[in-house]
């Protein structure tokens, strides 16, 4: 369901290299740069060495596909831009699933009370119940501010599914759905969380606005993991030894 749009190959490649001779020259340069960055990377070691190694591989790939050194910078910049914005100007769909050794009914009952969700959702600081299946959500932004919106339950099938959506006029319109299905051979319940954020101006534009750290598949997985930890073990684990080092855990 993720709307992945393949990059148009016509726009992807950089420069048409005019002559065969120029092409050969560029290939040789790319290959030399590849070997050079591999050697420097190996000497440096660590993260920078690893990055240089990856860069070396990229250059070798360019050389092998008949492209040269020319236009490398532009191609890399375009790749970075795409990563940050390009793909993300439509809706952003995030899904994750997890198996929890508890019954569908228990898991549904926990989730149905939205006010308990801050205990498991890292970016959510508070949820207040409002009348008519509505709720007010509050998230902390990376820069320490708060961001609020109102959501409304649109579907509620006990033990199976809850779906909600932000009400009209939200800055980042969003929908969410959690599903509960039996896992095989009595191994509990398979839980699937599907979130969709409408990002009319791209992910980068949404970043200062709200909780960009929540807008990743990893964050959704992590929240589901917290759900499992609370339901199976009764608490979210922490490696900290004292309270000041104890962040965002077990409430």
């Amino acid at each position: 369901m993720t709307p992945y749009r393949p990059i148009d190959p016509r726009n992807d490649d950089d420069t048409e290299l005019d002559s065969a001779r120029e092409r050969e020259k560029q290939r040789a340069l790319a290959l030399a740069a590849s070997v050079g960055s591999l050697m420097v990377g190996m000497r440096r070691g660590g993260l920078s060495g690893l990055l240089l190694g990856a860069f070396s591989g990229y250059l070798a790939y360019r050389a092998s596909t008949g492209r040269g050194l020319k236009g490398t910078g532009r191609a890399l910049a375009r790749g970075a831009e795409r990563t940050l914005t390009g793909h993300r100007t439509g809706p952003l769909d995030l899904s994750a699933s997890i198996t929890i050794a508890r019954s569908r009914e228990e898991l549904y009952a926990f989730w149905r009370d939205f006010t308990r969700l801050p205990a498991i959702m890292t970016s959510i600081t508070a949820v207040d119940d409002l009348p008519d299946g509505r709720s007010r959500w509050q998230a902390e932004t990376p820069l320490g501010g708060t961001y609020e919106w109102e959501a409304k339950i649109v579907e509620d099938v006990p033990g199976e599914r809850i779906a909600w959506r932000s009400v009209e006029g939200s800055d980042v319109p969003q929908t969410g759905e959690i599903r509960f299905a039996p896992a095989p051979a009595g191994r509990g319940t398979q839980v699937e969380l599907n979130l969709r954020y409408e990002l009319p101006h791209g992910l980068l534009a949404a970043a200062p606005l709200n909780f960009v750290n929540a807008l990743s598949r990893e964050a959704v997985r992590e929240d589901l993991r917290h759900f499992k930890q609370v339901m199976e073990a009764g608490e979210v684990p922490t490696g900290a030894i004292h309270a000041s080092a104890h962040e965002g855990v077990a409430r």
Binding site: A240, A243, A250
Partner: peptide, 10 residues
């Protein structure tokens, strides 16, 4: 270092 504290019920 700081002494450890009880952080979770278990």
């Amino acid at each position: 270092v700081a002494d450890p504290q009880i952080l979770n019920p278990r």
